[in-house]
Design a protein around this nucleic acid. Structure first.
Lengths: 212, 212
DNA sequence: TAGATTGTTAATCGATTAACAATC
DNA sequence: TAGATTGTTAATCGATTAACAATC
């Protein structure tokens, strides 16, 4: 019912609200939050509406109240487990990036095809063989995966993940995955992104070329 | 005139065409390319139209011809230089990822505030002090930057890059940058992306929740 | 030719923006 | 109260999809 764009913005709002709360702010107006997030005030109001939270015309939104409401909307009741497949340079960096960042969403296992990596503990996470995906994921109850394997292996590994019960994939491999529509895939294609930036940097950009 | 979405898809099409060419394919129909890219055939036709290339009803598009047409449309006549700021785990992984991948778009300098990193050569790229951004970028004619610094430093470094003449930024720091509208910013916010995946993984996703 | 595909316009869809009465 | 902000609907905008005559 709620678009992927909206979900993305809500995630961002929450982070900004947490920062504001750490600075002692108790309430915030839609235009304040909008300015920090780089969107319009109307956008913020509409997004807030979609989580069913209401503010007050005099004080705006309660910072902790809205942060919590977004949390209830976005987060699962219980923490979700994440697997990371492909422990190369990028995989390790991403693992380090996420470790400890979101307690409700933690990487519990990694997988690689390199026998030298299997068995090691990297950033607090044990590395298993790719062959073990099916058994381990069922065991750990993993529904979300991060894919950081080389392009050539991506499709095959993705299918394996889906067979193991994964319902959502954050795909860093530069290949569009062909998967059942019931699996949500978010692509982060760094080459495409960099080419986009290079193109608009030349064109003078202008206009409002950001979709976030 | 052409949307950021379209530019992104064109970049993807080119990569797919290059792969097809390597496999010896001479021509391709819009629906073939569409299937590979995960979009509709009509979308492909419209995108191809926007680069001013035309195919033939009997043979579809020439694979090398279309790849070249997209190249002329996307690429600058001369190679563009890129700078990377923030040589942490993620920065180094991204540097490795891009090195040699696109000859028309190569990272020529990196910057970091850590004195231990300054002066070193990382993945073939010399690391300079952040204070040198203005002088080095002018010297090297850099218009595009990749930002992989911690959240707290991102805004300040970004402003510095803009002062040094950068017109486009690929921003991995989890902070919305406040910059002049003439600077194109593409945000890659991995936390937001992962939360999106986790959310839709629970919801059963379905529908067509991918925007690419 | 017959037939599938193209270029291109028109219809649809969805999301963003503007507007404003209700409200604290 | 007076005034700025909210919730919410209507208008706008832009992009995607459908459709189809033209074409090789």
């Amino acid at each position: 019912m709620v678009s992927a764009r909206t979900i993305g913005r809500l995630s961002l709002y929450r982070r900004l609200l947490n920062e504001m709360q750490a600075e002692g702010a108790l309430s915030v107006y839609s235009h304040d939050l909008a300015a920090k997030a780089g969107v319009t005030a109307a956008q913020v109001r509409r997004d807030v509406m979609s989580v069913g939270y209401t503010g007050s015309p005099t004080r705006g939104y309660s910072v902790p109240g809205l942060a919590e409401a977004i949390g209830e909307f976005l987060d699962a009741p219980e923490p979700q487990s994440v697997a990371l497949v492909g422990v190369g340079n990028l995989g390790r960096a991403i693992l380090a990036f996420f470790s400890g960042r979101r307690p409700k969403l933690s990487v519990v296992a990694t997988f690689d095809s390199d026998p030298n990596k299997v068995g090691r503990v990297i950033h607090g996470c044990r590395c298993y063989a790719v062959d073990e995906i099916e058994t381990r994921l069922a065991e750990l109850g993993v529904g979300v995966a991060i894919l950081t394997v080389p392009a050539g292996a991506a499709q095959e590994v993705a299918e394996r993940l889906v067979r193991a019960g994964v319902k959502g994939i954050l795909n860093f491999a530069p290949v569009p995955l062909r998967l059942p529509r019931t699996v949500f895939v978010e692509d982060i294609d760094m080459t495409v992104s960099l080419e986009k930036v290079a193109y608009f940097a030349r064109q003078g950009a202008a206009r409002k070329e950001w979709n976030r």
